[in-house]
């Protein structure tokens, strides 16, 4: 089973700042981490590999600094890491990113399963996973909360919805995006970290992937960002402590008092 996990390098959200003039995220001096939802994708990939054999390849598109999140994925147990990096990739929206990642996957060749996190915590669009599937013309199951009965021919997935879940059977190759209920990501190991530090990371440029230059980066991005702003600060919350019956009464009184109900 050849599995590709697509990950994204995101700023550690606790200290996100937006430049009010350019409407873009200030990334300087902000720590980068693996998009937390993608760690569940890595874990699921590793679990399937441990069950069925094969390889987990982790891939991301980004500047050379994005190697650090790929090394983190390697330290968890992924066998190979690929970085799609090229100045022409810069400024990509979800469409151009999906295209570029799909070219990266085509370059690998035989791929049975592609796993992505359900969305990234910076953009929150949840579009890149399905976008890749569309460009590769393979089935896509979003919000996967559990994978059952997986073998070379296909698998059954539970797709989580707001009111419950769908049970979906799919052939392979396919793409899934996963929610955090699917597993508990493992900690890296020391041996994994030591190997990851030394590991070679494959770099592919737009030319390596035979990308259509009009489909990548800012040029290939139909999205135009008109304005980005930080949401206004929320008012101070209040927590009622005590017995449920008492706290419910207090809450109801407070809501009435404020004219909310």
């Amino acid at each position: 089973m050849n599995i590709v996990v697509c990950i994204k390098q995101v700023p550690d959200t606790t200290d996100v700042k937006i430049n009010p003039e350019t409407n873009t995220l200030i990334r300087e001096g902000v720590d980068s981490i693996i998009n937390p939802f993608d760690t569940y994708a890595i874990e699921e990939g590793l679990r399937i590999k441990e069950k069925l054999g094969g390889e987990v390849i982790v891939m991301t598109m980004g500047p050379p600094q994005a190697e650090s999140v790929l090394r983190e994925a390697l330290s968890m147990g992924c066998g190979e890491a690929i970085l799609l990096t090229d100045r022409n990739f810069a400024g990509a929206d979800t469409w151009a990113t999906s295209y570029t990642l799909s070219r990266g996957i085509k370059k690998i060749g035989e791929v049975d399963l592609i796993i992505c996190g359900k969305q990234a915590i910076d953009g929150d669009t949840a579009q890149v996973g399905p976008g890749i599937a569309e460009m590769l013309d393979i089935p896509c199951i979003t919000y996967t909360g559990k994978i059952k009965d997986i073998d070379e021919n296909g698998f059954t997935a539970l797709r989580m919805t707001e009111s419950g879940h769908n049970v979906i059977k799919s052939p392979l190759p396919a793409l899934i995006t996963v929610v955090k209920e699917i597993n508990e990501p493992r900690m890296p190991s020391l041996r994994g970290k030591m190997n990851a530090k030394k590991a070679d990371i494959t770099h592919y440029t737009a030319a390596d992937l035979a990308c259509n230059l009009e489909s990548i980066g800012q040029l290939g991005s139909p999205t135009v960002v008109r304005k980005i702003f930080a949401p206004p600060a929320k008012g101070k919350g209040e927590i009622f402590k005590g017995e449920p019956a008492d706290t419910a009464e207090k809450l109801a009184a407070e809501l009435k008092d404020k004219g909310i109900v």
Binding site: R186, M187, P188, S189, L190, R191, G192
Partner: peptide, 20 residues
Amino acid sequence: KILADSDLFAIFVPEEYGGL
């Protein structure tokens, strides 16, 4: 179990006996 899987029990054992 998490400490074991992370190789933390290997850090005080010589390499020739399975440690780090």
